[in-house]
Design a protein around this nucleic acid. Sequence first.
DNA 1: GCAAACAATGCATACGCATTCAAGAATAAT
DNA 2: ATTATTCTTGAATGCGTATGCATTGTTTGC
Lengths: 345, 345
Amino acid sequence: MTRSSNRTTSFEVAALAGVSQSAVSRAFTPGSSIAEETRQKVLEAARKLNYVPNSIASSLTTKRSNIVALILGNLANPFYVHVMHAFSRKLQEHGRQVLIFTVDAGAESDDAILQVLKYQVDGVILTSAQLSTRMTSMCHDRGIPIVLFNRYIPGSDASGVRCDNNGGGRLIAEAFLAAGAKSYLIVTGDPTATTSGDRMHGFMDRLIEGGIKRSDISQIEGNSSYEGAFSATIRYFSSPDVKRPDAIFGVNDIMAMGVMDALQLRLGMKVPEDLMLGGFDDIPEARRAPYHLTTVRQPIDQMVDETLAILHLDEPTRPIERGIDKRIPGRLIWRSTVPAPRDSE
Amino acid sequence: MTRSSNRTTSFEVAALAGVSQSAVSRAFTPGSSIAEETRQKVLEAARKLNYVPNSIASSLTTKRSNIVALILGNLANPFYVHVMHAFSRKLQEHGRQVLIFTVDAGAESDDAILQVLKYQVDGVILTSAQLSTRMTSMCHDRGIPIVLFNRYIPGSDASGVRCDNNGGGRLIAEAFLAAGAKSYLIVTGDPTATTSGDRMHGFMDRLIEGGIKRSDISQIEGNSSYEGAFSATIRYFSSPDVKRPDAIFGVNDIMAMGVMDALQLRLGMKVPEDLMLGGFDDIPEARRAPYHLTTVRQPIDQMVDETLAILHLDEPTRPIERGIDKRIPGRLIWRSTVPAPRDSE
DNA sequence: GCAAACAATGCATACGCATTCAAGAATAAT
DNA sequence: ATTATTCTTGAATGCGTATGCATTGTTTGC
């Protein structure tokens, strides 16, 4: 048994069924003009021969591959695993295949895009990876829609879907303010990502509106990872002249979890008794007993739906819409890392 | 700008470069006979036209798609996320594309395989999902190699690569025995999976060899998930006539983590002071401060390499090897959830 | 009962590239 | 200098399917 051997073709099925190859093709193409009787004959013959239509060949003529590329930057963050899962489920439901590319977080995605173009994908979804304008236009030029997921790349005319990160930052700020925190620490992620910056700015702006002095807001870098936030936290609090904040905002849950573990297991502080803590994303892990984290939920399903809507895979002739910047509000999930306000007043 | 518009073909590049279409094809095919000068002319023209070879069309003639399908069953377990990442990285390095399918854990993978066959993939990797013999032979009949990753399906002649689960179970048992545990609880995963069963059997056999009575070994079902193990643990210890075990073995890390949180945060027990705990997989999370779990490390990279070796994508003419059952030993990682033995005597 | 509309089918071709074959150009061997 | 090799190249063809077009058979309308 060697490779690339006996793959049955539509001609062989046609021969067995006593029809033309066209008929076989039609039997497998919903909505095409074929008598039910003929169709059954063909399907019967196909079954006997274990025939499976060759999508590659089909793509060549239809110019549609039914493949969607998903470029992933940071699988170490469970949030993106869930995003991937959601896309995979949804696309499979619609009979689409998912081509995965993993790139280093924050790295250029040019190579991946180039590969993707070779495979004539019907659309590209990009999460947490950079996108050059050259690649954007290459995709657009050949009619391949591309959507940035939870990324905003200034100056790009690629469309995107994201959570209202700024607004989400404000939500966490409001929770902290309501709980009475006066001094703050922000643990930021990838500095090249607008996602982290937007959350931080929304957070700070709201604090300042709430009467907090800028000098009461500090900031450290957590590398978008659990480990990064964990060690950054320890480093920060180990400094002799540190002012202990009342509240810490990790710009994503995985970092907030790292912060929390560092505080409680290494620095001997209790959350929320000594210090309150907020995250962003609402990954399932944030809900677990050791964390039970107050956070902002990103509505993944809705964001995925919006992304697919922009891709509009079902209407390939519709022009690609550029420059869409769909922003979807997050929702504050108040758990136990921020104490309930003393009074609702 | 409508879809499927102006995609440049090799003919247009040929025209601009003043050569034949064959020359263009050769310019992009490593190892083919073409003068360097011609090659440069072609590449120059291609660059001007933003030409990207159409892999779909190429696959049609070469009968190789350079696509490998990865069928994933349980993304809720971070272990499989890392497995996916490892495969993705490795395959990308070799210029292969990865087609992802997610199926419900333990579900039949027939639909996914059928899709995969349509796309003429060069190989299939299956993790934590069932595989019917019919699909196995369909793949084999058309020369598509298929490898089960960390799965063993009795009666199947599909090849597979897995960790020595039985041996790994024994390693954990030995650690517990060395630490002096006398009574045991096992938290099992998916009962249809041999993975869970093998770990459990290895564990039990070794305990019995170590002089433990079968009646001192209990067992509960943890659904292969954090949440399942968490609640199963609480349920178990809430029973009035429960005998408290000295040690608990979660057959994977994610369940061991659930057990640990349930014990410490809900049931007021301390690990390892009141109870020791072991896991399996050595996912990165197991190393984190809150857990620091004693576990068996699965050598993912090595397992991935072995899997790709069986696929032998680079030698498509070599016959598919069936029935290989490659078992790779795990390694005990002794962390703090099992106390060091009193003395090495 | 006849024209007109329609449904079903097959033929032929196109999709974009890889590859075989034969021919021509350049080089090496004698 | 002449023949034998090796390198390059282009024309032609095939990969497996979808589809426009023409043909035939069938139904509908009047």
